[in-house]
Write a protein that binds this DNA or RNA. Structure first.
Lengths: 261, 261
DNA sequence: CACGCATACTCGTATAGACGAGTGGGCAAG
DNA sequence: CTTGCCCACTCGTCTATACGAGTATGCGTG
């Protein structure tokens, strides 16, 4: 009678459900019921091999199912652990309102400080480049754009990777083309330049990350990304910026307020 | 010289990148470059075993990487195929505007018909039940609610699964408690009952689906879900409905329009 | 011609074994 | 006591094999 018996049952040989799925089911249920808590170590592969009397690959197969569901993650040399749900960042739909544009620091820094996290922005890159087809279409058939890339981190963990694209005739030679765009960010600069912002349009998709995104965001397996594309329009209904953002889905909740009209 | 050589190269034995990752990389690149197109069959496991000179489990491991990325899906007895991107349904932020509430059919049906798809709604269930903690909090501490569950399908494929929760003092005994809520849906009924809608609040998350959701939405592996929770408020700022929606992420693009204020 | 079955090919599941590499603790030498 | 090494335990990668089950094709029988 091992200590595992208290959390995990036996297999049903008559079931037509695959053995590795049965094991995954039992582990999942134990996690859901809180028998294994966040961050806690699951039984090792060897222990499960022993407990269920199956081969190691079968146990690993079970783990890979749970990994794909984002429930657990393995650490080489240590064990398999219940994946903790990181604190989420809530993005409200009024986050670009003018009243939030007063302060010197960026919205990300201010908000994270308020939440007690340690924010950081790195991978800054500002350069002119050729617009790809999609960006070009959104900005109204421009060929070249100013691209501002940056990565956001909370408490050392990368959570978001964003690129802003602006037409050259607007941004070139202005502070927008500088690494530090100044207080209130590029939206404040755009307004100073006479491009009064009227509204934003946001498109949201969710998908699994590419290998490059896994690296940039240090994503565990089983964590999707939220892909948000925001277009800013001025009062003349011209698209003045497109911001392409990829977020670690386990770190975000987006929130929108809609009028019933 | 097999036909595979034209699409796939050789392994680098000096690389410290695992063999199955190298194979996955080559297949991924071939797919990205369009050498294998949407819906097309990839080389069989046996062919890749032959081509690379590795064991079958190594090839399967490569496939499982690509499956986790949502790039391919396997069909028992047939082969492994490049996963086609299904037509997406665009949800605009004005989809609940009053002007869309005139017609007799539901918004889903009207919109899908217009897009040339064959819409269907099934799994209708309307019943009173105990509100869970989250729903209760959103509705302002109600104990029991009317729950309206339904599943939406496009061209036979399930794409969305939604449950609306309404306080009993509003919904009980009205047409809202009937399977068919009538023209304009429950929002039209709510307004007729004197609950004039003021605004909606939507919360969006993305995550991997639970096994139950995989079943309900017939999701391929590597497809996340978008979890949307909408709360409807009347002009007295009372929450009159909470709608919990789980969508197949590969079938949706959400679109919001925000004022710059 | 039509139907049914045999067969070959596909992926799914499972076993058993081997070696490698990261981690951490204990023990021995300095 | 501190340092450094060894070892036990962990997951990672890979091989080889076996059988099962779903699919498609073609051939032979009726």
């Amino acid at each position: 009678m091992t200590s595992l018996s208290s959390h995990l049952g036996a297999l049903d040989p008559t079931s037509d459900r695959a053995v590795f799925r049965q094991i995954a089911d039992q582990l999942r249920e134990a996690i859901d019921r809180g028998r294994f808590k966040e961050g806690q170590k699951l039984p090792s592969e060897a222990e499960l091999v022993e407990h269920y009397g199956v081969s190691r690959m079968t146990v690993r197969n079970s783990f890979s199912v749970l990994q794909g569901e984002g429930l657990v993650h393995a650490e080489h040399g240590k064990g398999v652990f219940v994946r903790p749900r990181p604190p989420v960042r809530r993005l409200a739909s009024d986050r670009f309102a003018r009243r939030h544009r007063e302060q010197g620091k960026s919205a990300f820094i201010v908000e994270a400080d308020a939440a007690g996290s340690h924010p950081k922005v790195d991978s800054l890159e500002v350069k002119e480049e050729k617009a790809d087809q999609d960006i070009s279409a959104r900005l109204g058939s421009v060929r070249r754009v100013l691209a501002r890339r940056r990565r956001y981190l909370l408490d050392g963990r990368p959570v978001e990777f964003a690129t802003s694209y602006l037409p050259l005739d607007i941004a070139r030679g202005t502070q927008i083309a500088e690494p530090n765009p100044g207080p209130g960010g590029i939206y404040a600069r755009l307004e100073e330049l006479g491009h009064h912002l009227d509204h934003f349009e946001e498109e949201i998709r969710a998908r699994m990350p590419s290998p490059a995104e896994v690296k940039m965001l240090q994503l565990a397996s089983g964590v999707p990304v939220i892909h948000l594309i925001r277009t800013a329009y001025d009062t003349e209904n011209r698209a003045v910026e497109v911001c392409d953002t990829v977020m670690a889905a386990d770190a975000y909740v987006l929130s929108y307020q809609l009028p019933a009209t």
